[in-house]
Amino acid sequence: MSLVEKYPEEVKAIFAKYPADKKRSAVMPLLYLAQREEGYVKKESMQEIAAMLDLDTTEVASIVGFYTLYHDEKAGKYRMQVCNDLPCALRGADKFLESLCGNLGIKVGETTPDGLVTLEAVMCLAACDKAPMFQLQDGDKVEYYENMTVDRTMELVEALKKGGKEIK
């Protein structure tokens, strides 16, 4: 199903945000929409978006490639993006990330065998006073988890397995 068929109201609302003759501005929100269900943007969606905006598919693909929150390949259902940039690293983020790798049994960049979590290391997320921290990318959504411990993170992973996101 195309984006327009699947999310007619949202597509309309996205176009309404920008001046009528500047529809190219809609490309970024449309890409988020395309990423909602499976966590990555499929070739067909890029083609559809390109056609809607009178762009080349290559041009849309280059935008997907440029911005780190868009993906063109399937990964885990959730992307756990741990910040290990300088301020967080000064407060132990590298060690935290290493322990997570051990607990999840994967390396940075890998996905757990059940396909649930892909573990990534990312740059500063504007939460440096609350290290260790990570964001959880889930389709087109991003959520912050701050002042984390390895134990609480593993609790979250257990909750994610059951379809929840709550930790005590």
Partner: peptide, 11 residues
């Protein structure tokens, strides 16, 4: 955009 490492005020 607040992306400078160490900046978290605008948030």
């Amino acid at each position: 955009d607040e992306s400078e490492p160490g900046t978290f005020k605008d948030r």
